[in-house]
């Protein structure tokens, strides 16, 4: 999203350093221009990202107005309660919160792991040149094109007690009741829906790999597996990491699939988003905002860890990934030539 590649730097480098003073003025001028050009983006970001976040933080410090027992009407102002909403989440509602926290983490971990493996497999299949390739590509992408709410309804039919899932396996499992099977149902439905997303991004990564690299590897006698480990995977890694990061952030906010497929307030699949929605639906915006803030912090930390530890190159500035360095070197030689 934020692809503003250090707008001030390149012109500064290309300017001849004859008059230091003039250069400084020119830089500040172009910096001002850059700031001007970027400002609409920043403004939009401030309105749609910063403002709601700050308002959510503020709201999370307010409680729910009580009922005036004499009139029977709800009081008109939200009382300021400080950090009480957070205290309640970790105190009185702690069991429910931690259950939702582990559910969210577990569902994210399992679904993203499965989606990555299946997505890569899909991408490899879609990348192959064979007859009917267009058809295969289109059909792999169909689940991704279906809205989550609709796929939730579809899978609810499949996991009905008289549904296809039970008919195929010959079992009689009540999927939407509490238990591990409910988690399993959500995982299956989610993997089905979003593995194509990873497949699509990995496919894009595959398509930019030079064929000559494989040719060279074949001449050196590398087998298919070796080619995959030593060429395909490292070269597709930047695209794959971005795909996995996006999926992880998305899965951490998982709401509609468990809500529609299994149902509200089912302990087995209740996620953090569902807790926030539950509070908001009961017109308790303070506690709802507190849940949202906690989820925000959690998602933020995971994203930060991704970028720091795995070097996911989302922002596209100074990611110290090997590929990037190679690309820079490549560009430099090109410029020199």
């Amino acid at each position: 999203m934020v692809t503003t590649q250090n707008p001030a730097a390149p012109p500064a480098l290309s300017l001849p350093a004859r008059h230091p003073q003039r250069r400084a003025r020119a830089t500040s001028g172009s910096g001002r221009l850059a700031a001007l050009l970027v400002s609409p983006t920043l403004l939009v970001l401030a309105v749609v990202v910063l403002y709601p976040t700050i308002v959510a933080l503020k709201d999370s410090l307010f409680g729910t107005p009580g009922l005036n027992p004499k009139t029977g009407f709800v009081n008109e102002t939200d009382p300021f309660v400080g950090l009480q909403n957070y205290g309640a989440i970790f105190g009185a509602a702690g069991a429910r919160f931690w259950n939702a926290f582990w559910n969210t983490t577990f569902l994210t971990g399992t679904t993203v792991a499965l989606e990555t493996v299946i997505g890569i497999a899909m991408a490899l299949i879609m990348h192959r040149a064979f007859q009917g390739r267009a058809l295969v590509r289109a059909s792999i992408l169909v689940p991704w094109a279906i809205p989550t709410a609709v796929s939730g309804l579809l899978w609810r039919w499949i996991f009905n007690s008289n549904g296809v899932a039970n008919a195929l396996t010959g079992q009689h499992i009540l999927w939407t009741t509490e238990g591990f099977h409910a988690k399993l149902a959500v995982i299956i439905a989610d993997v089905w829906k979003t593995a194509p997303f990873i497949g699509l991004l990995v496919l894009a990564g595959l398509q930019v790999i030079d064929k000559e690299v494989y040719e060279a590897a074949r001449i050196d006698g590398a087998g298919a597996l070796r080619q995959f480990w030593n060429i395909t995977l490292p070269l597709v890694k930047p695209a794959l990491l971005v795909a996995v990061l996006f999926r992880t952030l998305d899965a951490l906010r998982m709401f509609d699939l468990p809500y529609i497929l299994i149902g509200a307030q089912k302990t087995s699949v209740e996620t953090l988003s569902m807790l926030a929605q539950d509070q908001a639906a009961n017109v308790r915006f303070g506690p709802a905002a507190a849940y949202a803030v906690i989820l925000f912090v959690y998602v933020f930390l995971i994203a930060l860890a991704f970028v720091r530890l795995l070097g996911a190159d989302v922002v596209g500035d100074d990611g110290p990934t090997p590929l990037r360095r190679r690309w820079r070197a490549h560009r430099r030689t090109k410029v020199a030539a």
């Binding site: 749609v48 403002y51 709601p52 308002v55 107005p65 008109e76 939200d78 915006f285 905002a289």
Partner: peptide
């Protein structure tokens, strides 16, 4: 539509 968050800001109840 803004995730409900923006809407929360406008909800100071009054008479």
């Amino acid at each position: 539509a803004f995730a409900g968050l923006a809407a929360l800001a406008a909800c100071g109840p009054n008479g």
